[in-house]
Amino acid sequence: MADPFHVPGADWRPVSPKLATARRIVLAIWCAALVVPPLVSSLVFDLPRMRWVALIPLVLLGWGWWLIGRQVRAWAYAERSEDLVIRSGRIWRTMVVVPYGRLQYVDVDEGPIARMFGLASVQLHTASAGTDAAIPGLEAAEAARLRDRLTERGQAQLAGL
């Protein structure tokens, strides 16, 4: 079987592993918020079974913890001479090829938790709404470099619609 995600001439760069830590913190906050209500109600109203309900978010936390690690390792991008290739996902694997000449604009976003880790995400926009090309978890310096590089190449190769 051929690997459809093999791209000739691609020099894959991974996203920062710190992204996994950042995402796990967000996940842990959510799970903590879900654990508290059943736990408190079991203590206050003396419902011992509610403690088992409190286990559900913990199981989710463990599963999500593992999943995030896999997802972040699967995320990679490659700058080729004419286009940028992004691949992501482990279970649902996707790959997007965005020609520089088709770039309309590039977004760089920094969330509060990502910023604590010095991370930023880069989103590419073409004239198509179907282009779902995002690279989360880049080091801020790398994100800025990529943004400038993309706009520079986009300028040089810009074509009409």
């Binding site: 459809p4 995600f5 649902w92 694997r93 996707t94 997007v96 965005v98 020609p99 088709r102």
Partner: peptide, 25 residues
């Protein structure tokens, strides 16, 4: 052509398949 993509779900992978998408306006 605006951009291109490939998607492969878990069943696709087992059967050696993949879906090709072309992004239009």
């Amino acid at each position: 052509t605006q951009s291109l993509g490939i998607v492969q779900g878990p069943w696709d992978r087992r059967l050696g398949l993949a879906s090709f998408a072309l992004h239009s306006t």
